[in-house]
């Protein structure tokens, strides 16, 4: 392939993936509202389109046309920057997620991944951790005390789970001996090779930390509605708020995709095409998130720190040690 062809194919892939992710985010909100509705003996959105399927579009239109209110005492530059800092890293992590096997289209061999980095896993963890800066900056620059508390909580929360988050997948990496997402999928070719069976503790730890990473219930302290009104995004409106919103859902999708790739065999599965299998696994993971949100109360800030440092962190360390002893001795 010539240089131009590679550029062209990559650009098309990027556009397709970004659009798919944004659509995925929109329909995650639909799924969430529908599922939570049913959990709570309600119907959920059902007016816009069949089964309320056009609801996300209606929501988007509403948010775009809302007035963008900027309070007087904000730090203007950081205030404008913060939603972007949340939004962009959330999208970046999809660059290394493999959505399927090689396919042949128009005579080209196309990989169903934007970029197969050798350090794919590391890249994902690096960029998803950046999102917290956006939250802290938003909290600080809003000039509101509730936002400030949300931002402070977010940074404290990040410190307490990030270590365990990183350690939770070390077990898998020790077994696999690679950081490439594609290679990880290749190593889970049969059902019982899935890393969830070889690393059950690691999987549980990953799920818990991923919830904290994406600020979802029961770890939604930075935006705890009943305590901090809306936390770090209290002062945001219109598209700026929407960017936080999409960022949060993109992050959820990202950690779900990573979990699918690392623990659930990625796009592999019988009969159905790979991309469908991938979507099913991600959707299951997202539903689990939503289920938790509909069920659990919120932890308190000090309880989360305790949990992170006294339970998750030692457990993750232990898991790494045991894995290393079993597989590498």
């Amino acid at each position: 392939m010539s240089y131009t062809e590679i550029m062209l194919i990559s650009s098309i892939k990027v556009i397709v993936v970004v659009l798919a992710v944004l659509t995925g985010c929109a329909y995650s909100t639909w799924l969430e509202r529908k599922l939570v509705g049913h959990f709570q003996h309600r119907i959920g959105p059902n007016v816009a389109g069949p089964f309320g399927l056009l609801q996300p579009i209606a929501d988007a239109i509403k948010l775009v046309f809302k007035e963008d209110i900027v309070p007087n005492n904000v730090e203007r530059i950081t205030y404008a920057l913060a939603p972007i800092v949340v939004f962009i890293p959330a999208l970046l992590s999809f660059a290394v997620v493999p959505f399927g096997d090689k396919v042949t289209m128009f005579g080209y061999q196309i990989d169903m991944v934007i970029s197969d980095l050798d350090i794919g896993v590391l890249f994902v963890f690096a960029v998803t951790s950046l999102g917290v800066y956006g939250i802290v900056l938003a909290g600080w620059s809003s000039g509101s005390k509730y936002s400030l508390l949300g931002g402070v909580r977010s940074s404290a929360q990040m410190i307490s789970y990030e270590v365990a988050y990183g350690l939770s997948i070390i077990g898998v990496l020790v077994i696999a001996g690679t950081l490439s997402m594609k290679e990880l999928v290749a190593q889970q070719s049969s059902f019982f090779d899935w890393f969830i069976f070889r690393q059950p503790v690691g999987f549980v730890l990953y799920v818990i930390c991923a919830i904290a990473e994406t600020n979802r219930a029961p770890f939604d302290l930075p935006e705890a509605e009943s305590e901090l009104v809306a936390g770090y995004h209290t002062e945001y409106s219109s598209m700026r708020f929407a960017m936080f919103f999409i960022g949060e859902y993109a992050n959820m999708l990202a950690v779900s995709c990573v979990a699918t790739t690392i623990f659930l065999g990625g796009w592999q599965g019988p009969l159905l095409p790979p991309i469908i299998w991938f979507a099913i696994k991600v959707a299951l993971f997202m539903s689990f998130y939503i289920w938790l949100r509909a069920t659990l109360p919120r932890l308190r800030y000090d309880q989360l720190m305790n949990f992170g440092w006294k339970v998750l962190f030692p457990l993750a360390l232990l898991n790494v040690m045991v894995t290393a002893l079993i597989y590498r001795l």
Binding site: V36, F39, Q40, H41, R42, A217, P218, D220, A224, S226, R293, A294, T295, L296, P297, R298
Partner: peptide
């Protein structure tokens, strides 16, 4: 009370 603590489904059950 449960809603304040973050368990939002309770509200709907109780109201039912």
């Amino acid at each position: 009370h449960a809603l304040d603590l973050g368990a939002m489904s309770m509200l709907l059950y109780a109201f039912r």
